[in-house]
Amino acid sequence: MSTFDAAPGALIVHAHPEPLSFSSAQMAAAAGSLGEAGYRVDVLDLYAEGWAPVLAREEFAPGDGPFKPQAEQMRAVEDGTLDPLVRDHLDRLLAADLLVLSFPMWWFSLPAVLKGWVDRVFVMGGVFGGPHGLFGEAALAGKRAMLLFTTGGPGESFRPGGAFGPLDDFLFHIHRGMLEFVGFEVLDPVVTYGPARMTDEERSAALEAVEEAVARAARKPIAALPPA
């Protein structure tokens, strides 16, 4: 096995419509940092790829009775009829040791295109359910995930007593309800608060901080799985 083959893989799923945005620059900084840490980096730019976020019945083979999305996902996995693009993204997800979701926080959550990626690619029967369990028993157990994002408001707004309240309150449904649900060990998020309000010098320093934070995450040992 070559050194390249043995290197861990990182999948970055990026969701920002502007390639020149700070969010996109932040993603590029993270990708560079992971590459320097020895990762094989795979980037999925959802806007650039024109990703369709809606999980619709049309992507599945016709079935009998009411349309039940998760049941259809499981049937498609079993029958080998999963949408080819979804299958490709799922394979890239399963091949990665680290998943990074890169996005601007909109309405205290994921942009719709990224939530739609989760809807379509976190396939029942592929990453949970069916032959897989939930949480520590799901298909992605033993792998890690982290959020890389920007906010509109300053850091003090996301603290206890701040205008919005603790940041963790807004991340629980992503950390627990999406990432841990399918087995990931969730790393601390890397956040740049209010880059639109920064000077050019401050944004440059923020990108350096992102590189350092991602490098630390890349070096963190993988948590041991509980005994079977």
Rank of each mutant, 00 (worst) to 15 (best):
residue 41 V to Y: 09
residue 41 V to M: 09
residue 41 V to S: 09
residue 42 D to G: 01
residue 42 D to I: 08
residue 42 D to W: 06
residue 42 D to P: 01
residue 43 V to A: 06
residue 43 V to T: 15
residue 43 V to F: 11
residue 43 V to L: 12
residue 44 L to N: 13
residue 45 D to K: 05
residue 45 D to A: 11
residue 46 L to H: 13
residue 46 L to S: 07
residue 47 Y to D: 05
residue 48 A to N: 05
residue 48 A to G: 15
residue 48 A to V: 03
residue 48 A to H: 03
residue 49 E to L: 04
residue 49 E to H: 04
residue 49 E to A: 14
residue 50 G to P: 00
residue 50 G to F: 02
residue 52 A to H: 14
residue 52 A to V: 07
residue 52 A to T: 09
residue 52 A to C: 03
residue 52 A to G: 01
residue 53 P to I: 03
residue 53 P to Y: 10
residue 53 P to A: 06
residue 53 P to K: 08
residue 54 V to C: 01
residue 54 V to M: 03
residue 55 L to S: 01
residue 55 L to G: 00
residue 55 L to N: 04
residue 56 A to D: 14
residue 56 A to L: 09
residue 56 A to T: 14
residue 57 R to P: 12
residue 57 R to M: 11
residue 58 E to L: 05
residue 58 E to N: 07
residue 59 E to W: 06
residue 59 E to K: 01
residue 60 F to L: 02
residue 60 F to T: 02
residue 61 A to M: 05
residue 61 A to T: 13
residue 62 P to H: 04
residue 62 P to F: 00
residue 63 G to M: 01
residue 63 G to A: 13
residue 63 G to S: 11
residue 64 D to C: 00
residue 64 D to E: 15
residue 64 D to P: 00
residue 64 D to A: 14
residue 65 G to D: 11
residue 66 P to N: 07
residue 66 P to G: 07
residue 67 F to Q: 05
residue 67 F to T: 09
residue 67 F to K: 05
residue 68 K to N: 06
residue 68 K to W: 07
residue 68 K to D: 09
residue 69 P to Q: 01
residue 70 Q to L: 13
residue 70 Q to W: 00
residue 70 Q to V: 00
residue 71 A to P: 00
residue 71 A to W: 03
residue 71 A to D: 13
residue 72 E to L: 10
residue 73 Q to G: 05
residue 73 Q to R: 09
residue 73 Q to W: 07
residue 74 M to K: 13
residue 76 A to E: 05
residue 77 V to F: 05
residue 77 V to C: 14
residue 78 E to G: 05
residue 81 T to K: 06
residue 81 T to D: 10
residue 81 T to N: 10
residue 81 T to F: 00
residue 81 T to E: 10
residue 81 T to M: 10
residue 82 L to H: 11
residue 82 L to K: 12
residue 82 L to A: 09
residue 82 L to R: 12
residue 83 D to F: 08
residue 83 D to H: 14
residue 83 D to R: 11
residue 83 D to I: 10
residue 84 P to G: 13
residue 84 P to T: 13
residue 84 P to I: 12
residue 84 P to V: 12
residue 85 L to D: 14
residue 85 L to K: 09
residue 85 L to V: 15
residue 86 V to T: 15
residue 86 V to L: 08
residue 87 R to K: 14
residue 87 R to Y: 00
residue 87 R to W: 01
residue 88 D to M: 06
residue 88 D to N: 11
residue 89 H to G: 06
residue 89 H to D: 14
residue 89 H to R: 15
residue 89 H to P: 06
residue 90 L to D: 07
residue 90 L to N: 08
residue 90 L to W: 12
residue 91 D to Y: 04
residue 91 D to L: 10
residue 91 D to G: 12
residue 91 D to F: 04
residue 91 D to W: 04
residue 92 R to G: 03
residue 93 L to N: 10
residue 95 A to M: 06
residue 95 A to N: 12
residue 95 A to D: 13
residue 96 A to Q: 07
residue 96 A to I: 10
residue 97 D to F: 03
residue 97 D to N: 08
residue 98 L to E: 12
residue 99 L to Y: 04
residue 99 L to V: 05
residue 99 L to Q: 06
residue 99 L to A: 02
residue 100 V to N: 02
residue 100 V to K: 09
residue 101 L to S: 07
residue 101 L to Y: 07
residue 103 F to Q: 15
residue 103 F to Y: 15
residue 104 P to W: 01
residue 104 P to D: 12
residue 105 M to P: 12
residue 106 W to M: 08
residue 106 W to L: 09
residue 107 W to H: 13
residue 108 F to L: 12
residue 108 F to R: 08
residue 108 F to Y: 15
